[in-house]
């Protein structure tokens, strides 16, 4: 309960410049004799947008679940602002690959139920206002009384983003959030996500950790890209820094040398160095 009452707050108020927002230290995850992750070490600094990329079975979703507190490391630990993560908390929230909206609840109730659970500190009025704001931000306020099944894939993922963002987490976790969407919808949602993240004062979101298999998406969105080696015994193969100024312009980006070099390097990594025969 004390966690619930003390969080979330602004990053600057808590974190000293030397405390990573997330610290993954010596993390191993074994399932019986199967080694999913082997000795993963990563510090994520306040304000960073980090993508995790790799082939299927590279343990990237496992790593995300460890940060979410849905799973626990067999060895090592994951810390948020210096505190070891023992389970899910209101300081982290997640957008799932297949939206995972509760189909028997309206769009609005999907958000309010999550808020009721994750933010018991909010009273009814605050909850309704936060819900209104979150749904308006993703443009789905007019559809608030519909069931998720009446929405398109893009709209459903917007609701899932609104739900995750309404909680005002410090860290937003995304598990291949745009994988099932068409290119145009995907682009729009990526920009909306960037908007929410950069408006940190309003959303409270300081960090985004996103699992993806899309190289362009990773470069466009991230400050750093974590390339995982192939599983089993997956570990971090390389961490790439995306040295491109923000806000980024999609059209200009694809012509820049930094972008092209990064993309070529990642294609080489994923296509040759870490090639699978799948």
């Amino acid at each position: 309960m004390s966690e619930v009452l003390t969080l979330p707050q602004k990053s600057s108020a808590i974190a000293s410049p030397l405390t990573p927002a997330l610290a993954i230290q010596g993390v191993h995850r074994r399932y019986g004799s199967f080694v999913a992750l082997e000795d993963v070490n990563l510090d994520i600094w306040p304000g960073e947008f980090v993508s995790i990329i790799g082939h299927s079975g590279c343990g990237k979703s496992t790593l995300l679940n460890l940060i979410a507190g849905l799973d626990h490391p067999t060895e090592g630990h994951v810390q948020i602002l210096g505190r070891t993560i023992t389970g899910p908390g209101p300081d982290r929230s997640m957008v799932f690959q297949n939206y995972s909206l509760l189909p028997w609840l309206s769009v609005r109730h999907n958000v309010t139920e999550a808020l009721k659970a994750a933010r018991p500190d909010m009273n009814g009025t605050e909850r309704e206002q936060t819900t209104d704001h979150a749904l308006k931000t993703v443009g789905l306020w007019p559809h608030q009384h519909k069931r998720p099944t009446a929405l398109s894939g893009g709209q459903r993922q917007r609701v899932a983003i609104a739900r995750a963002f309404a909680v005002h987490p410090r860290v937003l976790l995304l598990d291949e959030p745009f994988g099932a969407l068409d290119a145009i919808t995907k682009g729009k949602l990526q920009d909306e996500l960037l908007g929410m993240w950069s408006a940190e004062g309003e959303s409270g979101i300081s960090n985004v950790v996103m699992v993806t298999h899309d190289i362009d998406e990773a470069i466009y969105l991230s400050d750093r890209i974590v390339v995982m080696s192939n599983g089993p015994r997956a570990h971090i193969h390389e961490v790439l820094t995306v040295d491109l100024p923000r806000p980024r312009d999609r059209a200009a980006l694809v012509k820049s040398d930094t972008y092209l070099d990064l993309k070529a390097h990642m294609l080489h990594l994923l296509g040759t160095v870490l090639a699978t025969h799948a």
Partner: peptide, 27 residues
């Protein structure tokens, strides 16, 4: 598992889990 994960990530109380996830799913 997806719905269970939603309940866990957003920290549904046991009552909330039964009323908002388990029973509607099984109804």
């Amino acid at each position: 598992q997806d719905f269970k994960n939603v309940a866990r990530v957003f920290q549904f109380t046991p009552t909330q889990y039964v009323l908002r996830v388990l029973l509607p799913y099984a109804l």
